Simulated scan of single mutants.
Amino acid sequence: MDLDAPGTSAPLLGEPTPVELMNTVWADRAGVHDALATPDEAVAWLRRVLPDPPVPDPDRLRLVRDALRRLAAERTGDPRPSAGSAVPTRADALRVLDEACAAAPTWSSLRWEPGEEPRREVRSDAAGDRVLIAGLAEQAVRFFAGEEAAELRACLAPGCVLYFVRHHPRREWCSAGCGNRARVARHYRRRRPTSD
């Protein structure tokens, strides 16, 4: 595995980390892509969102991502077939998150070395990659149980499979590019003659 691999192919939109993880499934004119398809790609994505991540099990990371996409689809009423998830039901998605959270119990520890300020450390007996995935799952639980989840949206621009958090009441798309594509498609539908 190349730990100096180039950056991720997934778009990073400045969304909460669970939404960024959902968006590791993305689309362009060539089709739908998975930015976690290989261990190198998983490490590249993690390096963009977390400092010094351990090397994860990409299958476990993808399973958590797919569970989040299932929950996002449920939360938003997402009608896009191309945005589907490999996790078939809400119950399955909840089970995946519970198992991921439970795989690496953590606890806080106070560290206070002479001459330094006290600091909190998070500790676990689990391996680093399990702690990482458990932490992502915990963030997802807090996200879906929190206020921001009410503003989670599926980007309904043509060909898009991303999610975003609507921070402005007029925001309809994940990005300006998707907004432009949607406006062009709407304009084309209005101008195109209809056949009887």
Rank of each mutant, 00 (worst) to 15 (best):
C101H: 01
L36Y: 04
A37D: 12
A157P: 08
P54H: 09
R189Q: 10
V122R: 12
E41Y: 00
Y163M: 02
G7C: 10
S108R: 15
V64D: 05
G7W: 00
P53G: 04
H187S: 13
G77H: 05
S175V: 06
D52G: 05
A103W: 10
D66F: 03
T17K: 07
G146T: 00
A154T: 01
L156E: 14
G146D: 04
D125P: 06
A35L: 07
A176V: 15
A150V: 04
P88N: 10
R111I: 10
V161N: 07
T106R: 14
A127S: 15
V87Y: 01
G7H: 09
R80C: 12
R130G: 08
V87T: 07
A30P: 00
R181Y: 12
R191W: 07
P18G: 01
G77E: 11
H187Q: 13
R95Q: 10
R70D: 12
A30N: 03
R192E: 03
D196I: 00
D59A: 09
R80E: 14
E138C: 01
L61N: 08
W26Q: 03
P54S: 05
L162A: 06
W107Y: 12
Y188S: 13
A103R: 13
R130V: 07
P193I: 11
G77F: 00
G31D: 07
L3N: 12
G159K: 14
R142H: 13
S195M: 09
A149M: 09
L132K: 00
E20M: 11
P53C: 05
P105L: 08
G146Y: 01
R183V: 11
G135V: 08
R111Y: 00
R166S: 10
C160H: 07
P81G: 09
A137T: 13
T106S: 12
P16A: 11
R170A: 15
A10F: 04
